[in-house]
Design a protein around this nucleic acid. Sequence first.
RNA 1: GGCCGGUUCGUCUAUCGGCUAGGACAUCUCCCUUUCACGGAGGAAAGACGGGUUCGAUUCCCGUACCGGCUACCA
Length: 534
Amino acid sequence: MRIVIKRLHNNQINGHTTTIYLLSPNSYLRSMSKKVRLRFAPSPTGGLHIGGMRTVLFNYLFAKHNKGDFIVRIEDTDQNRFVEGAEAYIFECLKWCGLEPDESVVHGGKYEPYRQSERKEMYKQYAEQLIVDGKAYYAFDTTEELEEKRKTVPNFQYSHASRSEMKNSLTLSDDETKKLLNSDASYVIRIKMPENETISINDMIRGEVSFNTSQVDDKVLLKADGMPTYHLAVVVDDYSMQITHAFRGEEWLPSSPVHILLWQYLFGLENMPQWAHLPLILKPDGKGKLSKRDGDRLGFPVFAMNWTDPKTNELTHGFRERGFLPEAFINFLALLGWNDGTEQEIFSLDELISTFSIERVHKAGAKFDYEKAKWFNHEWIKKSLASWLQPLVKEVLHKATVFVYDEDLLIKVIEMVKDRCVLFTDFVQQSSFFFAAPKEIDISSVKPKWNERKQQFFSELMRDYSLLETWKHDELEKTFTELAAATRMKPGEFLLPFRIMLVGGKFGPHVFNIAELIGKKETINRIKHTLQLL
RNA sequence: GGCCGGUUCGUCUAUCGGCUAGGACAUCUCCCUUUCACGGAGGAAAGACGGGUUCGAUUCCCGUACCGGCUACCA
């Protein structure tokens, strides 16, 4: 496959070369004929927040829409930031959301290994190749020296402007360099950024974005510990894993000229994936990108699932434990910055796969809106079949120590209460009383207006109910209203106390429906019990 | 500070030169409902600012403002 790289102009301006490279539209089309492969590349430094999850989602949707592969590669090149359990947590989140990778550390694949720490050797070769080609150099400056520089020189950058006064293979003689390399002095390999060239990236979301290479510093490619930095590792791995489209957060845009240059030097621009820089998810209140601290501060989850930092023991809340359905979570995330152009808002994963297109991703960052997230969850609970919800509700009730002894009853209950449940955890309050008499009864909402006549009404009600042969809600209501009519008080005067007796508080579905489901014996028992408290 | 990106109701967004600027969440009013919801009807609410281009700009171009990102041997 050959891809035309258009050299737009290459002229001498003040002695400097200005070159603009742009992939032509044809090359874009041609690259589409390859098998589409996308990768999500998290670093295992902690929990996965919704920004990361959305990046996963968009990667996954684009890959599946194009019948391609979705790969998860672990970017663990910073050994100082490694966090125990983070990697397993990431895969657990993906599993919960139903976004299973085709290839990864746990799924295997023909491009193994999928952990960068295990590919350490290959990066070094490429870094050294760059030195041979004059595109990179060894730098021997110590961390302390660099810190000192930054302190004394305002806005210090290790770049074309300053590299000649630093300690590196460009300023040292070959002999000195060799001597240092052979000694135990530590060194890094830095890219030698060209001067005053224009590099353009054709972003699938933003269109053409240009950078002047003079503004970009000589990024470290290979660290003193022999590990590559992100910059070298992405390029090498995206090439060796045959990645065709690379989606990542917008925060990577400024370093993209480094990546493009590396592609040009190492593997050829014609093999470079198509880039898409996704907009960021912002704090709901003020400024900046959403961080895990905002969740605690504002009272909503920020991670997909609960995450406890093994070092600090600090818990960050997750959507799963808060009572979100993965379908709703995914749906919400997808619509944060993307829409299909119609007014449809509720999408299943399959629908998202078939309608997703990266061009329709909004350019601007989006503020996180927890109210809207809850609305999606509510919609999903409402539209779901009771039988499908059943195991999940059972689990949530079980956690609240409510024992479900009758599966058929549970189905009926779910059908009756699901419209009132925004979060999954709402099922506890809305349905516990079907399975056990309420532990606490809100007497205070009844007591102030309680009187002899009411006392008598409920005694008579127990008598009438016990005589009923059919135990159906309409029958129960009829008996109730007829008895109430005889008292010459409004039926409503008795309705609230009745509800309190059956459910313990001012919530739940229609009272007579509740009475029907819990049965004659239990209904009478609960009336009797509450009467004793009054 | 420098570089890059962004800017439509409070929030998420539609609009790819013709707009009485549409939808959703939230909010408000009413109906349904003697709890709370669901449901139904309606209301209020937006093109940052200034210049161009054009018969006509929310839409295209430039500038300003504001917001955000990056500026590590972190990703």
